[in-house]
Simulated assay, not measured.
Amino acid sequence: MTLRLQLRDYRLTTAEILYCLPDHPALLQSYVWQDMDLAPSYPQLRRFLDFWSRTLEGRLHSVRVASQTLIAPPSVTCARACLTLH
């Protein structure tokens, strides 16, 4: 399933969600969400955030998103140093 999604340009997406605690609105708590999602629209993440807003009491403060393709062309880098160990 994951390979099929990757071939359709889905990528591993991580979101750090900061939200206000219901009992202490001045305090922020962090929640990390991770799933395969389609950039740049992120439909899975949007669905989750809509669920959060409708269902959970903690008001969203901010969401920071990062994504990385898991299938990519190979890359070659040259070594900067050659060390000998006796």
Rank of each mutant, 00 (worst) to 15 (best):
T77K: 08
L60D: 04
T13R: 12
Y19S: 02
M1W: 06
V63M: 04
D23S: 11
L12N: 04
H86E: 15
A15W: 00
L85D: 09
T2H: 06
A79E: 14
S67L: 10
R54V: 13
L18T: 03
V76M: 08
P25I: 04
H61G: 00
W33L: 10
S53A: 08
C20H: 13
M36W: 09
L70K: 07
Q68M: 13
D23F: 01
Y19E: 02
S75Y: 01
Y10C: 13
R11V: 05
T69M: 03
F48Y: 14
I17C: 02
I17T: 05
A81M: 09
P73Q: 12
A39I: 01
T14I: 03
L38S: 11
S62Y: 00
T69I: 04
V63Y: 05
V76K: 11
P74S: 13
T13G: 10
T55R: 15
D9I: 02
A15C: 09
D9G: 08
L49G: 05
S67K: 00
L21G: 02
P73W: 02
L28R: 15
A15Q: 01
Q34T: 15
A72W: 05
E57Q: 14
H86V: 12
A26P: 02
C82I: 08
L5Q: 14
L7T: 14
G58M: 09
R59I: 04
A79F: 11
V32S: 04
L56R: 15
R59F: 08
A26E: 14
T55I: 14
P74C: 03
Q6T: 08
A72D: 06
R47L: 08
R11D: 01
R46I: 00
Y19Q: 08
T2A: 11
Q29A: 12
M36G: 03
R54T: 12
Q68A: 11
L83V: 12
P73L: 05
R64Q: 13
L18S: 06
S41I: 06
L83A: 09
Q29F: 06
L49S: 12
Y31Q: 11
S30N: 06
P73N: 14
Q44F: 04
H24L: 13
D9K: 10
R54G: 07
M1H: 10
R11E: 10
T14F: 00
Y10K: 09
L27F: 01
P22W: 01
C78T: 10
A39L: 00
L12H: 06
S41Y: 01
C78N: 07
L28A: 09
D35C: 13
L83F: 13
S30P: 02
H61W: 07
L18K: 10
L18E: 01
Q44K: 14
D9R: 11
L12T: 07
A81F: 00
A15Y: 05
P74Y: 00
L5G: 00
A15T: 07
L3C: 00
T13H: 00
R47G: 05
Q6V: 02
S53K: 14
E16T: 09
C20W: 04
S41A: 11
L70H: 05
D35F: 03
L49D: 11
L5K: 15
A72R: 15
G58I: 03
S67V: 01
L7A: 08
P73C: 05
A66W: 07
Q34A: 07
P40H: 10
D23K: 10
